[in-house]
Design a protein around this nucleic acid. Structure first.
Length: 271
DNA sequence: ATGCGGACCTGTTAGC
DNA sequence: TGCTAACAGGTCCGCA
């Protein structure tokens, strides 16, 4: 699922339905996600309450009295709150079952997601510790991107998708933000002016905020029933539009490969 | 330190 | 219609 706006929308959707709930049991049907689910998870959670649901990058953080669950949705993960008695789908790998007979159910067909348990400050977990700033936070600035990019030879698209530089910029919104700021995705990161990095940070913020707003208005059900929430797509200018006309200049949108991922751009609008 | 490729896994679609 | 290959919204690890 996860671009950042989907993860944040998931957090907001499920939080009211899991906060202050007491865990009865953890049901693990498939132990092997990206990493094995910690064996201690069920014991650690039983009888405890979820006090808060947070997020860092694309990791959801479930705070309990004595520790935290880190949960990443990978490429295909989704979460729903439902009656625990509803039979699980083939790819419903984990239930956190509450005393009121509802459960938080993780579905993840590709199993690129992961679950971790920590009794330390979750933000100091090895997977979170070295992450860059949140793209919607105050420390994500053009000055910062400019400073970090000096001397870098890699392309700007790869650069802004590096989670040590800034978190939460996935493949779709990397292309979209570069389009909005008029920057060619193949341009070397170290060769871009401070002014253009200012535009790029603004574009990243705008694109994520727009998707978040859309997620808010099209908020599908994270609660009840069958199936999982689908993806919402912002109106995209370039992503998945190869060969179609640019909405600004009517030129042909191009598709290339960068680091084994597709990149889309307008060769006339982006330099 | 930086930059690149490979790895994890299943489902869907494009192409022959 | 059926088989196969390529691709999909992530990101961590290890090697040069």
């Amino acid at each position: 699922m996860p671009e950042l706006p989907e993860v944040e929308t998931t957090r907001r959707g499920i939080a009211p339905h899991v906060i202050n709930k007491k865990v009865r049991a953890v049901v693990i049907r498939q132990q092997c996600l990206r990493w094995p689910i910690p064996a201690a998870l069920a014991t650690a959670l039983a009888g405890r309450h979820i006090t808060r649901v947070g997020r860092r990058a694309k990791y959801l953080i479930f705070y309990l009295e004595h520790g935290s669950v880190l949960l990443h949705l990978g490429m295909s993960g989704s979460l729903r709150v439902m009656e625990a008695a509803i039979p699980p789908d083939k790819h419903d790998h984990v239930d956190i079952v509450f005393h009121d007979h509802t459960c938080l159910r993780l579905r993840d067909p590709r199993r690129f997601g992961s679950i971790h348990w920590t009794e330390q400050d979750p933000l100091q977990h090895p997977l979170l510790r070295h992450l860059g700033p949140e793209p919607l936070g105050a420390t994500f600035t053009g000055e910062r991107l400019y400073a970090l990019s000096r001397g870098r030879t890699q392309s700007v698209k790869i650069f802004i998708m590096d989670s040590r530089i800034v978190v939460g910029v996935g493949n779709i919104y990397a292309s979209e933000a570069l389009f909005r700021s008029g920057i060619h995705p193949l341009r070397r990161a170290g060769n871009i002016s401070l002014k253009r990095y200012g535009a790029l940070t603004g574009a990243i913020r705008d694109v994520l905020n727009a998707a978040l707003a859309k997620g808010g208005t099209t908020l599908r059900d994270f609660v009840g029933g069958d199936g999982a929430p689908g993806y919402f797509k912002l109106d995209l200018n370039v992503y998945d539009r190869a060969g179609e006309p640019c909405r600004v200049c009517a030129g042909n949108i191009r598709q290339i490969r960068q680091g084994q991922r597709s990149t889309y751009y307008c060769p006339r609008c982006q330099r």
